[in-house]
Amino acid sequence: MKLTLYIWRQKNAADKGHMEKYQLNDVMEDMSFLEMLDVLNEDLILKGKEPVAFDHDCREGICGACSLTINGVPHGPEKATTTCQLHMRKFKDGDSIYIEPFRAKAFPVIKDLVVDRSAFDRIMQAGGFIGVSTGNAPDAHSVPVSKKNADLAMDAAACIGCGACVAACPNAAAMLFVAAKVSQFALLPQGQPERKKRVLSMVSQMQKEGFGACTNFYECEAVCPKQVSVRFIAKMNRDYLCSRVTEAVEV
């Protein structure tokens, strides 16, 4: 099939950037979206031009490296699917496709479609862990966890840290990402000792990074490739409010 692509090109962080138009003539429907871009890039290199830079790695929907806002929707039109797992059979011959980087103040563009998502790492460093050093662990069966909570924790832990939630949110809020991690630990007995401190530290770091506020659009949940539910945001809100009231430390 034939496609017209409009792709955001930006030389580096300092460059203003612009949309550029490309024409692709032989796109097969079994191709993945990124394979389609590979084809474009091979073509560009052979023409002596610079290929389009985009983040990607595992190409099986789990590493969270791929991004791209496709026709205004992060990870494109297919539900619960990362860009690398999106296949061209979801598009029609003659379609125009707009490809832009994930947009947020906290995700500055590095080049073309590549953005810097290290803000997520810094949020994790602020408290996204259970503080147990290697070798200190008791036997795995010493603390039973109800299946219900273990499953729910897994639902939250499924987050791949791709940042689509931020990209989709008109406010560039990172609540779904932070809530997923906070909730995973809050649901497990192992996470209780640091529970209050964790939510306060992570939320505080989230704000320092310049993410916006949640206005309950639920757009994050809709584009999340792992279908992490906004109920975790509600859970985190409650955790945060309780912790603000009871925890003496001002974070």
């Binding site: 955001w8 707009y98 947009r103 506020a213």
Partner: peptide, 12 residues
């Protein structure tokens, strides 16, 4: 705050 968190809007 929210406007500041998303300074550049999408073309589409």
């Amino acid at each position: 705050l929210n406007l500041g968190a998303k300074p550049k809007k999408y073309e589409v």
